[in-house]
C-alpha cells in the first residue's frame, strides 16, 4: 500500500473517531454545534448575526438580528430549524443562505446548529 493511502486511511479513521467521540459526549455536542455556527466554511452565522452572550463571538456582522432569547422567539424547534434550512420560505427576499436546501450544511449539522442556537 503506498504511503499516501495509509496516511489517508489513518486520517479518515481519526475523523470517524472524532465524530464518534463527539456524539458520545453531550458537552462536546454543544461545542460541536457552536463550532459549526462559527466556522466560516460551515454555518458562518457570525457573518450576519451577533451572539451577545458569547464572548468568543468577536466582530460579528449585523445583517440579521443578534441571537438572543431564541427559545422565547422560537418556542417551536421545527420553526427554528425551518428558518435555518431555507430562510427564503418565510421571506423570499431573505439574504440568509438556505443552509439545508443548498446543502451548505448536512441535515445532522443543521440539527446540531439548531440545538446550539436554541440554547442562546
Amino acid at each position: 500500500m503506498p504511503i499516501k493511502t495509509i496516511i489517508f486511511l489513518f486520517f479518515i479513521a481519526t475523523l470517524n473517531c472524532a465524530n464518534l467521540c463527539l456524539a458520545a459526549d453531550g458537552v462536546n455536542e454543544k461545542s460541536y454545534g457552536q463550532s459549526l455556527t462559527f466556522d466560516s466554511k460551515k454555518g458562518n452565522c457570525l457573518a450576519c448575526h451577533a451572539i451577545p452572550s458569547e464572548p468568543k463571538a468577536v466582530f460579528p456582522g449585523n445583517i440579521g438580528a443578534p441571537f438572543a432569547k431564541i427559545k422565547q422567539r422560537f418556542p417551536d424547534r421545527a420553526k427554528l430549524r425551518a428558518q435555518i434550512w431555507d430562510a427564503t420560505v418565510s421571506n423570499p427576499n431573505s439574504s440568509m443562505p438556505p443552509f439545508g436546501r443548498n446543502k451548505i450544511l448536512t441535515e445532522q449539522e443543521i440539527d446540531q446548529v439548531t440545538d446550539y442556537i436554541q440554547g442562546l
Binding site: 466560516s40 445583517i63 443562505p97
Partner: peptide, 21 residues
C-alpha cells in the same frame, strides 16, 4: 452560487451593513 446571493443582496439590500468585519 451555493450561498444564493445576488450582487444586489449585498450592495443594494444590505449596503452599509456589516458582513462579519
Amino acid at each position: 452560487g451555493q450561498l444564493n446571493f445576488s450582487c444586489a443582496s449585498c450592495h443594494v439590500n444590505n449596503a452599509g451593513k456589516f458582513l462579519r468585519g
